[in-house]
Design a protein around this nucleic acid. Sequence first.
DNA 1: GCAAGCGCTTTAAATTGTCAAGCGGTGTAA
DNA 2: TTACACCGCTTGACAATTTAAAGCGCTTGC
Lengths: 139, 139
Amino acid sequence: MTLAAPPQVAAPSGAASSASSQPGFCPVYRAIGVLQEKWVLHIVRALLDGEKGFNELARAVGGCNSATLTQRLEHLETLQLIGKRTEDTHGKLARSVYSLTPAGRELQGVIQAIDMWAREHLQEDEARLEGQSGCGSAV
Amino acid sequence: MTLAAPPQVAAPSGAASSASSQPGFCPVYRAIGVLQEKWVLHIVRALLDGEKGFNELARAVGGCNSATLTQRLEHLETLQLIGKRTEDTHGKLARSVYSLTPAGRELQGVIQAIDMWAREHLQEDEARLEGQSGCGSAV
DNA sequence: GCAAGCGCTTTAAATTGTCAAGCGGTGTAA
DNA sequence: TTACACCGCTTGACAATTTAAAGCGCTTGC
């Protein structure tokens, strides 16, 4: 069962340390909620490298399927972390280009923190091979 | 930004080029894979606040159900990010206590980055309310 | 005795993510 | 002219993950 904690969970005071949130809005909690959606961090990371088209992004992210990607991009767009622009190349080819908004770009700090941590603590301990693969970029 | 970024990204992924073999192995990619599992960041955040028992942790995390929590804890344990200790309080009550290992504790940097970002960009501009709630602890 | 807390496990649904395929359009090569 | 190959997606069926709900064995406190 779900222990206690109705939707209103969080720090029932008991949680020792610091302040408790007031009206129940906690930015960090929310941020984690967004960032832990599958592929979100990968998408941000890929876009930190520069704006990209749909398929291009899909390739860069590596392994995300189009349906999920579409959905994620929509979500990130409503959150204003990424922006979508339809560029009209010369004649008629309409290409969609996704890029980070300023807010999204600031997630770079998060990615960097992860990168730093990963390099130090995830080197080769595998133990669990989840079939992930390379990536290529460096931060 | 600093991302060097050889676009030659992750595996062919969806594609089929079974490159198999030993793919690049990219720590960051892997790290993201772990951190984006639901509840993982919440768990780490809760534990940064000090070691906790199972139910206690569940309450601190807020909203994760026991089955998932058990599974996540197992995974994190095999990854050596958290440790489990069964403490034998005086007489007979066996209580399990979970705490971060040194490697896990260093995720603090990641949490902090998220926290910082969240406070700055997620204040309450949300257009979407996902019914999340408070959190309580500070980083 | 009995409710309540502890650390979990089990079972069946609901939610999410994925595969595979396809649609309308364009650029390129045969 | 007819293929393909690539673009940006969408759809529908299916698998994986997460969830609620309940329960088990055990201990503590009233």
